[in-house]
């Protein structure tokens, strides 16, 4: 780098100091420093624009970014929890850390803008699965190869969240789901006493929705066995045995 190029940033910084005096700076110190620079450059301290100085593009449009955009470059903001009663545990799982970290950040920011106090991300223990397979045919068992799959997990806890807001938050995350990330949420709701009766009343309307989800989960009982037993016992073959 040539000499003028090297000193340009320094000179620039000093000029800025001259243009707008910092309130907390010592007056004497500033004056001596500005004098020394001006003497070196042979320029009067009056005009801020130098002869062979190009205007800095950064200074020309000094409009700052909107606060919400600026916040993206900083740590995510968080709400304060007043009571600290947990209302939702969201577990995120992925095989790759960058994706996971990114989405955790996203989830926490979303919680902030929804007014939910979010805690985390808490790194949970990794799940390591390993497989060992022979590289070749059966007889070459001596030479094997190991494979592994490590699942990384993060926990984000919402405290003092209104159940509806929590649902909105979860729906938002599901809508903007990132690739390669699995989500699992435990939600706690607090209701009045005798909630059982109310839930029994809602059961019929909820049955259809629940069945759709439950179809994909493992069940240890075969559906329709009871009806089949009744049918068999009523059938011609069994009737004469009783």
């Amino acid at each position: 780098m040539s000499r003028p190029n090297m000193i340009r940033p320094i000179r620039h910084a000093l000029l800025r100091q001259l243009a707008q005096q910092p309130r907390n700076a010592l007056a004497g110190f500033l004056s001596t420093r500005s004098q020394s620079t001006t003497v070196a450059d042979n320029v009067k301290p009056g005009p801020p624009q130098l002869v062979n100085e190009l205007p800095d593009p950064r200074e020309e449009n000094e409009t700052r970014l909107p606060r919400a955009v600026q916040a993206l470059y900083l740590q995510p903001l968080r709400r304060e929890a007043e009571y600290g009663v947990p209302s939702c545990d969201l577990q995120l799982r992925s095989f790759s850390i960058p994706n996971l970290e990114f989405f955790c950040d996203f989830a926490i920011r979303a919680a902030y803008y929804l007014g939910l106090p979010a805690f985390g991300p808490v790194p949970l223990p990794k799940i390591t699965e390993r497989w060992t397979v022979p590289r070749s045919h059966f007889i070459f068992k001596k030479s094997q190869e190991n494979f592994e799959r490590i699942t990384r997990r993060r926990l984000i806890q919402i405290r003092d969240g209104h159940p509806e807001t929590v649902q909105i938050w979860l729906a938002f995350l599901q809508k903007h789901a990132h690739y390669g990330i699995g989500m699992k949420a435990n939600i706690w709701e607090y209701g009045k006493l005798e909630i059982g009766k109310q839930m029994d009343g809602e059961l019929k309307s909820m049955q259809e929705v629940i069945e759709q989800k439950m179809e994909h989960l493992g069940r240890d009982k075969t559906l329709g066995t009871v009806e089949k037993v009744k049918e068999l016992l009523a059938s011609e073959r069994f009737r004469h045995t009783r």
């Binding site: 095989f95 390993r130 497989w131 190991n146 494979f147 592994e148 799959r149 490590i150 390669g180």
Partner: peptide
């Protein structure tokens, strides 16, 4: 081709 599976050591 299998997500997340890599050689282990």
């Amino acid at each position: 081709n299998i997500p997340g599976v890599q050689k282990a050591s």
